[in-house]
Design a protein around this nucleic acid. Structure first.
Lengths: 133, 133
DNA sequence: CAGGATCCACACGGATACTG
DNA sequence: CAGTATCCGTGTGGATCCTG
């Protein structure tokens, strides 16, 4: 067991970057994770079931969703509730900690959506300049 | 040329996730990038030179820093200014767009630092429960 | 339905050497 | 100093098949 989990490496070793920053790195790694961000946003408005989340996100494999949810659970950001029914049902919900995080994450998401066009234009221009290939 | 650049895949194809979200994904991918986040934070207080940034961050290889800066430049988040002196000198600075982004990013960083202990405790507990290995 | 197990590709990222 | 070029290990993540 214990193979993947999302590795949370914590920067190598350098005596650089004050330790707060280094510890924060592993947290940012989770937040920085594309899928984690999406899941947190999806869970923003109430608990959801596994396949429900999967459908909402769309491009994610069940493997990645499982791994992502496991990671978020590990970090105390979401709770996993199993209903021992047939067929089984599992609900995922943000914890208080998770809800706290969802605020800054949403801010980021909002920013991303708002400025997406500018960024895409910047990319086009940049690529155009360097694409003599 | 044009080998890496940070791939910006934009989710596969699924007719899921409203298109705003899908476009935002590629933006979040940049923000989600660990190194990009650090660089943006470093550049938060004024322009910096290449090796200056490298030293401040510490754990990054010059390759990754180059790639990261290239990506940020491509997205119109930082400007690259070359002084044709000997030895050469290159300054990197946040654009207005970049400065706009640095706000939410800092918010996230702050959150990460503040709640890092809770998260680490959550991880310990989680690992303790499942580590019968 | 929710997810564990496996196989596999390939992009990411480190180390090193070389250049303007 | 600020890169580029190359080699190469490995984590990440998709696809597929199987179970309670």
């Amino acid at each position: 067991m214990r193979p993947e989990h999302k590795n949370v490496p914590a920067l190598p070793a350098g005596p650089h970057l004050d330790s707060d920053c280094r510890g924060a790195a592993s947290v940012l790694a989770r937040v920085g994770d594309k899928w984690s961000v999406f899941v947190i946003m999806m869970l923003g408005d109430g608990p959801k079931r596994f396949n429900e989340i999967k459908r909402m996100i769309g491009g994610i494999s069940q493997r990645m969703l499982t791994l992502t949810l496991r990671g978020l659970e590990r970090d105390g950001l979401v709770t996993r509730t199993v209903f021992p029914t047939i067929p089984p049902r599992v609900d995922y919900e943000l914890t208080d900690l998770g809800r706290g995080l969802s605020a800054p994450v949403k801010a980021l998401g909002t920013w991303a959506i708002e400025h997406q066009p500018e960024i895409q234009r910047a990319r086009m221009k940049f690529d155009a300049r360097n694409d003599n290939a």
